[in-house]
């Protein structure tokens, strides 16, 4: 079964995106509004969501929780959080099997020396219809790519990889952290079955290696850069600057999150969605 059909089946969706539930053009560009979320909450069945926390800093779930205005609605009426230590205080152990989930958000990369993480990840893949690499650590390895082990409290914890190195991943939301808006927009799109909006997240599941030097390799070297400055604006660690109209990377600051390349208008180009959002 294709991923799209799987999502639709699990969320009980129609074949076509729900146009009625689409926000008006102006609102859409500003992220999911409160009314939009309430409307979705009323109309759709609640998906069961799990939150799996591997080797990440909790920044991604904090960004999720920054959707203050919609969070109460999100957690109480829109979705059921069935698994997770921060959002639901539900742990998996021998006595308590992991519940079935429609969507599992996985924060953090996975440490190959951490047996518990490996088991949890494998179990999630079995229990969740969809697995989302949530945040750059999970998607690209991000900052944990720099780990070389040899540190307390577990000097043996050395090797951290994006989850897609070990399991099939259905979609990815990179970012260190992903913005509160992209999280809200994604959740709303998921519940609406708005597959057009989610397509980039599905495509990004394949991007497991990222670095600021992608800009040089995949944009400048490929004769695609126009010096617009979007990558510099997007960089979350100020590792980029523009020199003579081209991005210049300070690799000491780069955390390999992939956001510069993801936001570059020359990496992928969602023209139809943009025009729709603008009412053009």
């Amino acid at each position: 079964m294709s991923l799209i059909n799987r999502i639709k089946k699990f969320f009980g969706m129609e074949a076509k995106p729900d146009i009625e539930a689409e926000p008006d053009a102006a609102k859409s560009a500003e992220g999911a509004s409160e009314q939009e979320v309430e409307k979705v909450a009323e109309e759709k069945a609640k998906p069961r969501i799990g939150y799996i926390h591997l080797s990440g800093c909790t920044g991604d779930v904090m960004s999720l929780s920054e959707n203050y205005d919609i969070l109460a609605e999100l957690l109480t009426n829109m979705v059921d959080i069935v698994y997770g230590q921060t959002l639901a205080d539900v742990w998996w152990d021998d006595e308590n099997p992991m519940p079935e989930m429609d969507l599992a958000l996985v924060e953090g990369s996975v440490c190959l020396q951490d047996e518990h993480s490996l088991h949890e990840l494998m179990e999630v893949r079995k229990r969740a219809a969809m697995v989302c690499a949530f945040g750059s650590c999970s998607a690209t390895g991000c900052f944990t790519r720099y780990s070389r082990g040899g540190q307390q409290a577990r000097p043996d914890h050395e090797s951290f990889v994006p989850i897609a190195d070990l399991i099939d991943v259905d979609c990815a939301i990179p970012g260190c952290p992903p913005s509160p808006e992209i999280i809200a927009k994604t959740v709303v799109a998921l519940i609406n079955g708005d597959m057009d909006y989610l397509q980039p997240m599905i495509d990004l599941a394949g991007m497991t290696e990222a670095c600021g030097c992608d800009l040089q390799l995949k944009v400048v070297n490929k004769a695609l850069c126009t010096g617009c400055g979007t990558c510099v604006m997007a960089c979350q660690t100020r590792a980029l600057d523009m020199t003579n109209g081209r991005p210049e990377l300070n690799s000491d600051r780069c955390i390999k999150c992939g956001i510069c390349y993801v936001q570059c208008p020359r990496s992928w180009w969602p023209e139809e969605r943009i025009k729709k959002d603008l009412g053009l």
Partner: peptide, 25 residues
């Protein structure tokens, strides 16, 4: 003020603000 390629970077960020927080609106 932006030339076309810059409008594209800005509009993509507004529709898909993956790593760009509280700027799109």
């Amino acid at each position: 003020v932006a030339i076309p390629c810059q409008t594209m970077g800005i509009r993509k960020m507004q529709s898909y603000p993956f790593g760009v927080r509280f700027l799109a609106d």
